[in-house]
């Protein structure tokens, strides 16, 4: 409850949640195509039932965790988070989900583990975008363990109290609200605890432009565009851009994770 309060307190008056339509019709999920409307058009082909998540690596209880079994053990709550894409647009999304830490504790994190690696479902017959080598499939992402254990990091399973739609990463996806959206990996099938920084898809594709950390930071530009401001989806053709905030406005909660780090170097 206290945490929901922290997350809520960061909301400015402009942070009205986006509509269901906006959240589910404007997506980046390159496995279904690079157009913003491709995921809504084509993600229906993805099989999400049955679904299980393989949790392996440095854990006490490795194995395939069935989605329903996970849900039976987790406490789902609503978290209204800002969502900031590296492309400089943003939304406010009322997620339903559980803390990633709870899931990791379910598997039991071994003491030497330092990082968490994630992997997205891949089925070339169901995902038409994977016919093209836009990225090295499957999509992979990673967090440092302390980031993953942070109470703001959640696995989302719903939006507006409804099951999360396929184009938004059904049946469960990561949401790390203080990082650029591509860190919040969709349709997760595998979580691996490791002692090494895992590879991440956009970093592999273009290391100069996408770092491992990818924290929202208005002072460190993406080489091809400024990150100083963002356009909130839903404002229409004449909406004024809004200034982007450090750690997407969650600095009070997460800045401590990066004490002493040069955020220009570890971008």
């Amino acid at each position: 409850l206290g945490l929901a309060g922290i997350a809520g307190s960061a909301h400015a008056a402009t942070d009205e949640p986006n509509s269901w339509e906006e959240i589910t019709r404007y997506n980046n999920f390159y496995e279904f195509g690079t157009g913003k409307d491709d995921p809504a058009k084509y993600a229906d082909a993805m099989t999400i039932d049955p679904w299980s998540v393989r949790i392996d690596g440095m854990v006490d209880r490795p194995g395939d965790y069935a989605f329903d079994d996970i849900m039976a053990k987790m406490t789902v709550e609503e978290r209204i988070y800002r969502f900031r894409c590296v492309e400089a647009w943003s939304m406010v999304i009322p997620w339903n989900g559980f803390e990633l830490a709870d899931l990791l504790n379910l598997a039991g994190v071994k003491s030497g583990a330092k990082y968490v690696a994630f992997e997205t479902y891949l089925n070339k017959d169901e995902m038409r975008g994977t016919r093209f080598p836009v990225l090295d499939w499957p999509y992979v992402e990673g967090l440092r363990l302390d980031e993953a254990m942070h109470p703001l990091a959640i696995m989302a399973t719903g939006i507006y109290g409804r099951d999360i739609p396929k184009q938004n990463g059904a049946p469960l996806r990561l949401v790390v609200p203080w990082k650029y959206g591509f860190k919040s990996i969709k349709s997760v099938v595998r979580i691996t605890l490791t002692d090494r920084e895992p590879p991440t898809s956009w970093n592999k594709a273009n290391a100069r432009e996408y770092g491992f950390y990818s924290n929202v930071n208005p002072e460190v530009d993406h080489p091809r565009w400024s990150q100083a401001s963002e356009r909130r989806i839903g404002g229409g053709l004449f909406a004024k851009n809004i200034p982007t905030r450090m750690f997407n406005g969650y600095a009070d909660d997460v800045a401590g994770l990066y004490d002493g780090m040069d955020l220009r170097k570890f971008f």
């Binding site: 409307d37 647009w89 229409g236 053709l237």
Partner: peptide, 9 residues
């Protein structure tokens, strides 16, 4: 609204 939710881009 005919160009979707992000009409500027």
């Amino acid at each position: 609204g005919g160009l979707g939710v992000e009409p500027v881009k």
